[in-house]
């Protein structure tokens, strides 16, 4: 399984999402690759992804995709990430 985190720069916020998503996936015992990318490369990065994690601002720009787009409000709240990832992957 592949999960892509998206932000404007491809560093910083998407990196934090990646790190915390990996922590949550480990605790859920889900095997997945998490890739941080910027908006400009979302088409390539997310072509084979099951899930995209991002902020509300980027949903329209991500456009049509086969992946589940999950909007994260608090990047540091692993409880929020856990419940949203569990809902999408469960």
């Amino acid at each position: 399984m592949k999960i892509v985190t998206i932000c404007g720069a491809g560093i910083g916020s998407s990196g934090i999402l990646k790190v915390n998503a990996e922590r949550v996936l480990r605790s859920l015992d889900i095997d997945a690759i998490v890739v941080a990318a910027d908006l400009a490369s979302v088409r390539d990065a997310a072509a084979d992804a099951q899930v995209i994690l991002t902020s509300a601002e980027f949903v329209d720009a991500i456009g049509a995709t086969f992946a589940d787009v999950i909007v994260v409000t608090n990047y540091f709240d692993t409880a929020e990430l856990t419940s949203k990832l569990r809902a999408a992957l469960g």
Partner: peptide, 19 residues
């Protein structure tokens, strides 16, 4: 360009740009 997404948690902004 991208909006206030840098406010990644309540009360906290992570301002940054690319390398």
């Amino acid at each position: 360009e991208h909006g206030p997404y840098v406010v990644i948690a309540p009360g906290l902004a992570l301002a940054h740009a690319r390398p």
